[in-house]
Structure formats: structure tokens, C-alpha cells
């Protein structure tokens, strides 16, 4: 199960955070800081997995943005790595060449996309097309 998802830039600004477990605000800040510190200076040649307290961080870097998932120890790391990529592809399609600013100005849309992709910390939909079609319909409903 995914515990939380972060989208952070190199400077350590958290552009998006989604928690699937209840945490205190102070704890959230601390986690954001710690996860950022762990991923930001890692050599790209190293693994995309980090053992973090009792869980694992699966992260992937896209230009200046880090996508980090906190998952259980015995989850399939490679599968989550692929999930991050799928999520980024969806964002890229939706925003047509996504950049960090898109995420800032459309944070509510990003949450919407995330809610179509993951629910309760579990993968909900695996087809990029299904999600994009759905988002188009939802946009129409606005």
C-alpha cells in the first residue's frame, strides 16, 4: 500500500503531497524534508529505492521534479516505479508537455488525476487511455 506521494522540486518545495495515512502536520513537514534530503543528492546511477524507517521510498526524477512514493517493505518496487512513470505520462498528456508551473497553477487538477489513478493507497486504473478519457469527461462536467 502507498502511504504517501510527494511531488517535490530540487529546491525542496513540495508541489504536491497526498497522504493515505493520517499524520500530524508537523510529522508531514518532517517527512517532506527528510524524503527530499534523501532523494535530491542521490547519484542517478544508484537504485531508485531507499529504505526509509520501516518503509521504502520509490522515487524517480523527471527534470527538476522528484516523484516519491512511500510503500510497504514487501511491495513490488519495480511495479511502483512503472506506476510513477505511468502517472507522469498521464500528466504529460493531460497538460500537453507538463512542466512544474502547470502543477502549481492546476494543483486541483493534479489531485483529480491522482484520485483517478490511485485510491486508498492502491492502484485503481492501469490504462492511460481510460484515465485520460475519464478526465476529459470530467472536464466537460465542470
Amino acid at each position: 500500500m502507498i502511504r504517501f506521494i510527494y511531488l517535490q522540486n530540487r529546491q525542496g518545495k513540495t508541489r504536491l503531497a497526498k497522504y493515505y495515512v493520517p499524520l500530524e502536520d508537523s510529522e508531514k513537514r518532517k517527512l517532506e524534508y527528510e524524503v527530499h534530503r534523501l532523494v535530491v543528492n542521490r547519484d542517478p546511477k544508484l537504485t531508485n529505492f531507499l529504505e526509509f524507517r520501516t518503509h521504502k521510498i520509490i522515487y524517480r526524477r523527471y527534470a527538476g521534479l522528484f516523484f516519491s512514493l512511500c510503500v510497504d517493505m514487501n511491495d513490488n518496487e519495480l511495479s511502483y516505479l512503472e506506476a510513477i512513470h505511468l502517472f507522469v505520462e498521464i500528466l504529460d498528456h493531460f497538460f500537453q508537455n507538463v512542466c512544474e508551473l502547470d502543477l502549481v497553477f492546476n494543483f486541483h487538477k493534479v489531485y483529480l488525476i491522482m484520485d483517478e489513478f490511485i485510491l486508498g493507497g492502491e492502484l485503481q486504473e492501469t490504462s492511460k487511455k481510460v484515465i485520460l478519457d475519464r478526465l476529459a469527461e470530467l472536464d466537460k462536467a465542470e
Binding site: N76, S79, E82, A83, L86, L123, T126, S127, K128, K129, V130
Partner: peptide, 20 residues
Amino acid sequence: TPDHDIGGLTDPFLQVKTLR
């Protein structure tokens, strides 16, 4: 299957869950 193809595989996520 164009809808579910990832890296030449049909829905690897579903495969992983089923295997698990």
C-alpha cells in the same frame, strides 16, 4: 492491446497483482 500496453506487455500491473 493499445489500451493496456506498457513496455510490450499487456497490463503488467494487473499481472503483478494476479501473481501476488
